[in-house]
């Protein structure tokens, strides 16, 4: 076998792959770097909106307005290591804490579900929940993000139980989503677990 044959058969493909990889990784890295800040600010805004929604505060349409209300009314409570443990939300005019909000995660059908769950100061009554991030099936489990589903949680106490979508929900019952029993159950478990956490915080 000649030297040229070895180069063409063995070395050139490796070099070619290496160069193509470098070129494409550079392109994606540049695009990522350019949009990194926009993505981060989208996510931060999303989590602020979720905290307000979970505390029962109407979410304004503009990002600036959200930041203003958040700055005035929400206080982040950190643990010894500086990680945010939960959020204290003040009333509209008074400085008193009206709600606490916990951001919590739990397993869904395809991936992790991240939710903000708000309580009144007793830590027992739910003031609202918002799904921050989820990978459930669009149109089925993905409906956990729909308003009718989230709104049901307001004013209820854990432990919550599930009933069918068409059934009338009792005082501490939640209508599950038809065809998405696993996702509904996942939310039920996340909320019930968060309630235990909330009561630990209140103590």
């Amino acid at each position: 076998m000649s030297k040229e044959g070895t180069f063409k058969r063995r070395i050139f493909p490796v070099l070619f792959m290496l160069i193509v990889t470098l070129v494409f990784i550079s392109i994606t890295t540049i695009i990522y770097t350019l949009s990194k800040d926009t993505i981060a600010s989208n996510e931060a805004l999303r989590s602020r909106e979720s905290i307000l929604y979970a505390a029962g505060i109407p979410v304004p349409g503009s990002g600036q307005e959200t930041d203003r209300i958040y700055g005035e009314r929400v206080e982040e409570v950190t643990d010894d290591k500086g990680n945010i443990q939960y959020y204290r939300v003040k009333g509209e005019n008074s400085g008193d804490v009206k709600n606490i909000v916990i951001i919590t995660r739990g397993p869904g059908l395809w991936g992790e579900i991240t939710a903000a769950i708000g309580y009144d100061v007793s830590g027992k009554t739910i003031s609202g929940i918002e799904i921050i991030d989820q990978n459930e099936t669009p149109g089925l489990g993905g409906r956990i993000g729909e308003n009718w589903f989230k709104e049901q949680f307001r004013g209820k106490h854990s432990p919550l139980s599930l009933v069918g979508e068409q059934a009338a929900a009792g005082p501490n019952e939640i209508q599950a989503i038809t065809g998405a029993s696993y996702s509904s159950k996942a939310i039920q478990e996340i909320v019930n677990r968060a309630s235990t956490e909330a009561q630990g915080i209140i103590k």
């Binding site: 494409f24 990522y32 949009s35 993505i39 996510e43 989820q134 459930e136």
Partner: peptide, 30 residues
Amino acid sequence: VETLIIASYVIIVDIVLRAYLPDVSRQLGP
């Protein structure tokens, strides 16, 4: 090489959606 090229373009689509259409990106998920 083809897989690499395709994957790169898809990552670009994903980044653009996350930056400029966050709601849609959240709904489409994986």
